[in-house]
Design a binder for these strands. Structure first.
Lengths: 219, 219
DNA sequence: CGACCAATTGAATTGATTCAAGGTCCGTGG
DNA sequence: CCACGGACCTTGAATCAATTCAATTGGTCG
């Protein structure tokens, strides 16, 4: 949907491979070695209509998975960070877009032994399904504040950080992920700040001051 | 969550097996024969915390998949009808409830050959994922009217009916699936009726008068 | 420095909810 | 057979959370 070129990068430019979960390690083992691609911000990794098949491992950076309504409204079904796998598709063609959020290194995974790959893929597909199902609750039943609290807690858990959470995506992306407008995202962050639950160290970095307080808002 | 007993029923009481999709047929082939259970309305098929593993094939009736927030708000992540498979779970324990909506026959599927079963399961798990992702767009970005139109079109497609759609679940269930209140569901159905897009033959049966008109509202 | 894009903040609007009556349907018991 | 009770559904009026519209501020890059 945006700029298209995805040029190769010297592997050295990509940070040391993130530690993988057992499921990801198994999948990588069952895949044959493929290109490691680097994308700058807002490039298309695959588009709606592209042939599905290979999976993708995020090595560095962040990826957003995007669906558009016919009239252009946007829903980001998920973000993926280093160590996570995306690209699952039921049919022959992708129904969504995968785009880099920031500078992003992506490893393509193609099946080596068909059966082994499939079995590893199942575990990860089920994780994606679980994620999606939890997000359905968020979109269907949580208030704006609760959505943001959930999102921040989720990011904290996945980034395994020290109380700081990176927000590499812009407010608009967060809004389209949480089913809100970017103005509301901005306002909610302000109220969380006013309640001393978070601190906005930078526009793209949040410090979690009170994880328990945030959890109470979570749902 | 509700009444617990699930008694066995004579197989004859259950209508002739619905024609299965190729994926479902393959899964049934790779499963060892297991109990066919009958549930009356609003019984629990599995609960949050129950051990995951087996899959379930809906033979007759309808099933709802439910998640609850800590304070009791409810999101129905999916409905399943005859010929559909549910019960996918990433971890060892279910994170949601499966409940019968009306009188429902369910076939339990347990792996016979581990690998064959897993490969068949992947295709169906991906279908569930695709469904969930489409529902994310509905919850995140569609208006109440659009949600209802989408829901009715989806049911039409899945029930393969002649312009009539059964609504075996009550308004409250529809609301908790579409992220609305039951009053809003009622009101939206009224406005669709006033626009001559549908007719409420009975409270649980909708006639689609103008599929194209509905599709225009779809998104 | 100036231009541009993203983020914040404020004020007015609105779609959906909440609260509150009724109405309909159906099974049960007199 | 019909009256009653309860569960579900419909409809109306008032409210509210989030959006829309509109500036303004902040940050980055040539």
């Amino acid at each position: 949907m945006l700029i298209e070129s995805a040029f190769r990068y010297p592997e050295a430019a990509i940070a040391a491979t993130a530690p993988h979960s057992p499921e990801v390690a198994a999948l990588v083992g069952a895949a044959r070695p493929c290109a490691l691609s680097y994308y700058r911000a807002n490039e298309v990794i695959y588009a709606e209509g592209d042939a599905a098949g290979p999976l993708y491992l995020v090595v560095t950076g962040a990826v957003r998975i995007v669906r558009l309504t016919p009239d252009g409204r946007r829903q980001i079904s998920a973000f993926h960070f280093a160590g996570e796998v995306f690209g699952f598709e039921a049919g022959a063609e992708h129904q969504d877009y995968a785009e880099s959020v920031d500078g992003t290194g992506v490893q393509v995974l193609r099946p080596q032994s068909a059966s082994g790959f499939g079995n590893c893929a199942l575990a990860l597909a089920l994780k994606s399904l679980e994620r999606a199902n939890r997000h359905l609750v968020l979109l269907g039943r949580l208030s704006a504040t609760e959505r943001m609290a959930s999102f921040l807690i989720d990011l904290t858990d996945r980034q395994g950080a020290d109380g700081f959470v990176g927000l590499p995506m812009q407010r608009n992306d967060i809004a389209d992920h949480l089913g809100l407008t970017f103005e509301t995202v901005s306002r909610v962050l302000r109220t969380l700040k006013d309640k001393h639950l978070i601190r906005l160290a930078r526009v793209d970095q949040v410090e979690i001051l009170d994880p328990d307080g945030l959890s109470l808002l979570n749902a």
